[in-house]
Design a binder for these strands. Structure first.
Length: 202
DNA sequence: CTACCGATTGACT
DNA sequence: GTCAATCGGTAGA
């Protein structure tokens, strides 16, 4: 089954909308070692200048420059010596993005097990840094065009689009500022979601 | 140059 | 549930 690559227009929108709609889509990675990837089950929105938790809220630096670039490209950053993957949203110059926090492994599970050093499928890509390790994503993919449909891309999943997804909204994980904002989205009752699966009180 | 911090994880109580 | 590891990015001298 051929999965259709998500086009630039998908990302040319508010990051909240993009975060919600990335759930159920397929994140894929291909190297000489083979194809791997899975269904996105958890994502967070980071909202440009007015969001203190957004890396770009205090202007452009060498690190966050990709966030100011065109939508549909990757923003890869390091935190606590581990890599995390974002998809840049909104028009060029508006530094917003969606952090992809977890996938449910589907393709190339053996390859991901090898990269992660564990056989436990639930631990392969549950959390943004584990996800990057499983997919062999590092800073060389900062700025990568996710709409190119090779090496690292996101595709539609017809099966997931057929049925309505049960999406839960909560506060973002590890974010100390702007805790009132509920900008994390995940699939209800999915074992591959990281962190707390409690809804934030409204 | 040095000092501090963090969108995390894995180990441990 | 708690907590330390560990180092690139950033700000500041």
């Amino acid at each position: 089954m051929q999965l259709r690559v998500l086009a630039r227009e998908f990302y040319l929108r508010d990051p909240v909308m993009v975060a919600r709609e990335l759930l159920g889509r397929r994140l894929l990675r291909e190297t000489s070692a083979g194809l791997c990837g899975g269904t996105i089950v958890e994502a967070e929105a980071y909202l440009s200048a007015r969001d203190p938790a957004c890396h770009a809220s205090r202007g452009m630096t060498r690190r966050n420059a990709a966030m100011f670039g065109p939508p549909g490209h990757a923003y890869v950053y390091m935190i606590h010596h581990r890599w995390c993957l974002n998809a840049v949203t909104q028009p060029e110059g508006v530094p917003s993005a969606v952090l992809i926090r977890a996938i449910e492994p589907i393709e190339g599970i053996d390859l991901m097990q090898q990269r992660r050093g564990t056989d436990i499928i639930r631990d392969l890509a549950r959390g943004p840094a584990r996800l990057c390790e499983a997919l062999a994503v590092d800073r060389t993919y900062n700025g990568w065009d996710l709409t190119a449909g090779r090496e690292l891309w996101i595709a539609d999943d017809p099966e997931c689009n057929e049925r309505p997804l049960r999406i839960v909204r909560s506060a973002r994980i590890g974010v100390t500022s702007a805790h009132r904002r509920l900008l994390r989205f995940y699939l209800a009752d999915n074992r591959f979601v990281s962190g707390s699966t409690r809804r934030a009180a409204t």
